[in-house]
Design a protein around this nucleic acid. Structure first.
Length: 398
RNA sequence: GCACCGGUCGGAUAGCGGCUAUUCCAGGUGACUGUAAAUCACCCGCCUUCGGGCAUCGUUGGUUCGAGUCCAACCCGGUGCACCA
């Protein structure tokens, strides 16, 4: 595949969804216009099993590079993951992952990433594992890498400064993390590294190492973190993560329940809607319509156009008109409480009783509020639990 | 090795030996809505025949009528000092 030199495309690549470019945008632009094919990568430490919409920003940027014909590497951080990236951590993490765990998580990451980037077809993304080289380094190799860093440089990071001030420990293990990530650039001999703006320090460490060990200028491109206009991170509050594999209805619902302030950032960072159009949006006037639109677009991207339509319809019927969904989860068990607990729809029997007391459980077929927690309905009866949970009771006295 | 500090709910915090373990964040339910956001109210260990029962402040013992709180030992984390002959 030939490298695309189209001005408009290059401009979009360098501006939309870009936080900063090191050393400068102009230098990179010049290089791109020359038509040189660049080798670039973005690393993902598989320390969880889910990618969320925050990851999507970087992956989309990945895809853009891919579409322009450059050599793009999806780097699985099964080596760096063992060190434990201290970025954004006010404390040393307590758990370090084993290689097996990381490899297992990586599998999930890859299936999820497939929704955004291409692993096959023209100019497919290459998958690499940094454990392949990091695990082979000897201590002496590490020393030779460490030679290029000073303690002052590493300790300069805000988070370490903060910890020093508070008297919180800085474990040597995490302290050395930037060396590992930096070495990735050297090992793969890349021209550019892509990552979230929170990764700037680590990526610049790689830039420095690259110059020291290979005499090469590595570019660094950072993408903004997904946050609303008040700077609040979107969809990352532990239980409320918007995952790339969330079911269409769930995904649609979660996006609808985001703050209005999130709408513009979502359009800018996660869709191809032209910037002119986005600028013309009137958030104050019709926030809900716009939110529906973004929810629809995202479901269509992560699932399919058909499912997006269905999810929108489901949303519209269920929540705006108060209608009952056609399909609902089955709850099997002896009593209603049994069934709800064993199907995982509520977390414990106590929790179920609490919901009954709060009059949150409604028998959809009779319209009655369930008031007795030991109630055993007829098999097939449908229930609404709270505002988002639905279930069909199936009698199963085993 | 020595000294000091700490370990309490998913996270962060409070807790002169006394009954019901505090507050904040996150989360749930209801009201209001656009499933918004903001706000307000209630809730937020488990089991229950709804009377109550059981568990729980790092672990194990002890002192006491009574221990998250005092004592001892141990485990874990941190900080400082020493060692580096």
């Amino acid at each position: 595949m030939k490298v695309v030199k189209d001005d408009g495309k290059i401009d979009e690549l360098l501006t939309r969804g870009v936080d900063r470019i090191y050393p400068s945008k102009e230098k990179l632009e010049e290089l791109l216009r020359s038509g040189k094919k660049l080798r670039l990568y973005q690393g993902f430490d598989p320390t969880g099993d889910k990618l969320h919409i925050g990851h999507m920003v970087g992956l989309r940027k990945h895809r853009q590079w891919q579409d322009l014909g450059h050599e793009v590497i999806f780097l699985v951080g099964d080596g760096t993951g063992q060190a434990g990236d201290p970025t954004g951590k006010a404390k040393t993490r307590e758990k370090f992952f084993t290689q097996e765990e990381l490899r297992a998580n990586a599998k999930n990451y890859l299936t999820q990433a497939k929704k955004i980037v291409r692993f096959d077809g023209p100019n497919p993304i290459k998958i690499m594992y940094n454990g392949d080289w990091l695990n082979k380094l000897t201590l002496v190799d590490v020393l030779n890498i460490a030679q290029h860093f000073s303690v002052q440089q590493l300790i300069e990071r805000d988070m370490f400064q903060g910890r020093l001030k508070e008297g919180v420990s800085i474990n040597l293990r995490e302290f050395l993390y930037p060396l590992l990530q930096g070495y990735d650039s050297v090992a793969m001999d890349v021209d550019l590294e892509l990552g979230g703006s929170d990764q700037t320090f680590n990526m610049l460490a790689g830039r420095m190492l690259m110059r020291a060990m290979k005499g090469k200028e590595k570019f660094v491109m950072t993408t903004p973190l997904l946050s609303d206009s008040k700077g609040v991170k979107i969809g990352k509050s532990e239980d409320n993560i918007i995952g790339l594999t969330d079911e269409p209805n769930d995904l649609f619902g979660k996006i609808m329940s985001l703050s209005d302030d999130a709408i513009i950032p979502l359009f800018t960072l996660l869709t191809d809607v032209p910037l002119d159009e986005i600028n013309s949006f009137n958030i104050k006037k019709n926030p809900m319509e716009l939110k529906k639109k973004i929810a629809h677009l995202l479901v269509a991207t992560l699932h399919s156009e058909k499912e997006a339509k269905e999810a929108e319809e489901f949303f519209f019927k269920t929540f705006q008109k108060g209608e009952i969904p056609d399909e609902m989860m089955e709850m099997r068990g002896d009593s209603l409480m049994d069934a709800a607990v064993s199907s995982g729809i509520v977390s414990s029997r106590t929790d179920f009783r609490r919901l009954v007391e709060e009059e949150a459980i409604v028998n959809l077929d009779s319209g009655d509020i369930v008031s007795d927690s030991n109630f055993t309905p007829d098999s097939g009866t449908r229930f609404k639990i709270g505002k988002r949970r639905f279930g069909r009771f199936i009698s199963d006295p085993s």
